[in-house]
């Protein structure tokens, strides 16, 4: 038997919205420690990896490891029926062919029950090696979203270059070119919210090219976290990570574009 509950069901809906444009369906792997999911887009350029810790749930019980094969568009249809402040419970039998989703309003005056049919999904899993990245940038997620959206109107590829002082996003297209640089926030700046700052950890300057179409896709997760972390290396996939307080994180890996 698998059972879990989230006080803020809305978070789960946002998570599914952050995944469903990239991958159509996937396996939720549930074990005693939490829930994980991995899926690649159809062209094998981007990968999304979700890791939810049991500590983030108000209730969590997993007697035996279960795999829930889920079509995200179908699940999203059901989650649409959930109120913004509803509590969400998910339940599945060990060998069942469906999972139940229960939405309950704050005052328990409204309870909604949905049964989602599960799928058998034979999916390739990718082993992501532990890597020491040359540059790690933490910045406000809304700022990253805006940059990706605005630059994609000009070109389809962004060059991200990182130095100790700043991270620069450059774009070029038929109409011309441009760049936007974000300077590392002053370390002595004790005022203001940490989540508003741009922090750069650098081992070595890095520059790589990425398709803006995918980055824009990743920014669907902006609603999940005030900050985003970009990890870059030389000739390796970019990691875009959104951390949700104690619930876990959603990570997107994107293969670079390489000069021919």
């Amino acid at each position: 038997m698998f059972e879990c509950a989230l006080i803020q069901g809305e978070l789960f809906r946002k998570l599914i919205a952050s995944v469903q444009d990239l991958v159509q369906d996937g396996n939720f792997m549930c074990d005693a420690n939490g829930i994980s999911l991995q899926g690649m887009d159809s062209s094998h350029v981007a990968l999304v990896a979700l890791a939810l810790k049991k500590e983030g749930f108000v209730e969590y019980r997993c007697d035996r490891d279960v795999t829930l094969g889920i079509n995200f568009a179908n699940l999203a249809k059901m989650l649409k029926c959930m109120g913004a402040k509803d509590r969400l419970s998910i339940r599945a039998q060990d060998e069942g062919d469906s999972a139940s989703f229960v939405f309950e309003s704050e005052d328990s005056s409204r309870v909604s029950n949905f049964e989602l049919k599960l799928m058998q999904i034979d999916q390739e899993q990718l082993g992501v090696p532990e890597t020491q990245y040359k540059a790690v940038i933490r910045m406000p997620s809304s700022e990253f979203q805006r940059i990706c959206k605005d630059l994609s109107a000009i070109g389809d590829t962004v060059s991200i270059s990182v130095t100790k002082e700043a991270v620069k996003f450059s774009v070029g297209g038929d109409i011309g070119s441009g760049d936007m640089s974000l300077r590392q926030s002053e370390s002595g700046d004790v005022d203001g919210d940490d989540s508003e700052k741009v922090m750069i950890e650098l081992e070595e300057p890095v520059q790589q090219n990425f398709a803006l179409r995918y980055l824009n896709n990743f920014t669907k997760a902006t609603a999940l976290s005030k900050t985003v972390t970009l990890s870059l290396g030389t000739d390796m996939p970019l990691v875009t990570e959104y951390k949700m307080d104690n619930l876990g994180s959603i990570r997107y890996y994107l293969a670079p574009k390489i000069d021919e």
Partner: peptide, 14 residues
């Protein structure tokens, strides 16, 4: 002119 590579160039299918 940049060419898009795939993730399988970096990660191993398990």
């Amino acid at each position: 002119p940049c060419a898009q590579v795939t993730l399988t160039n970096y990660f191993v299918v398990t």
